[in-house]
Amino acid sequence: MSALGRGGQFLGDVGRSLRETDTWVSLTAVQMRRIGVQSLPIALFIAVFAGIVLALLSSYSFTGAVPLYFVGTFVGKAMMLELAPVLVGLALAGRVGANIAAELGTMRVTEQVDALETLAFNPNAYLVVPRALAATAMFPVVVALATGLGIVAGWFTAINLLDLSSPDFVKGLRLFYQFKDVWFGLLKAMSFGFVIAMIGCYKGLNTRGGAEGVGRETTAAVVMGAEMILVLDAFWAVVLL
């Protein structure tokens, strides 16, 4: 309960520091680039394999009872709605969340955060806001690219390994398509990005006790980030589907 209170207080402090635009605006672009560069390789890697598996999995499940072009439907829906945001989110909880927690944790234990404060900066405006905004903005971009590549991988698998033609795959893909499929996945990605960055920052800034402390908080940030993604995933499904 007190953990929830402290989390809420942190959220409020960070929200208030949004006013200090002259501090965070220029730093956000740098963080966006960093998060993009860090995330893309792993996200695309995951997408390719998820796409392959989805195509094979669906054709196996249909066993001829369902027309094969539904493979396109299945791959598209599953990638957009669930697999791209969640798999990529979980991977980035490790990649981005750990990176933020370790960086800020090291800055905390080496007194660089204190130094920032004595130079009259607000660490929330200087460190947290750029990372939270950058992750919120970049996760949907990364997930969108992963979704696209995942579908392409599924299509490629379908025409090469399954007895499906390109037009049929596309027909299936468009069959029950709604615009909501797209924005639902991207909204989830935004919320994952925000939460992963905020947890990383919170754990990092509250690090105590040298290198050991940095390791401990970094691990904690990854675990908590992954848990929160699964919780949020269920939350959005309940609220929006």
């Binding site: 800055m107 080496t110 007194e111 660089q112 204190d114 130094a115 920032l116 404060e117 004595t118 130079l119 009259a120 607000n122």
Partner: peptide, 22 residues
């Protein structure tokens, strides 16, 4: 916050391990 900012700009702090931004 503003008062603190003003105070801090008049005080230099030299940290034990320098705390340079690496």
């Amino acid at each position: 916050r503003d008062g603190l900012t003003a105070l801090r700009s008049g005080i230099g702090f030299v940290f034990q391990f320098a705390a340079l931004f690496d």
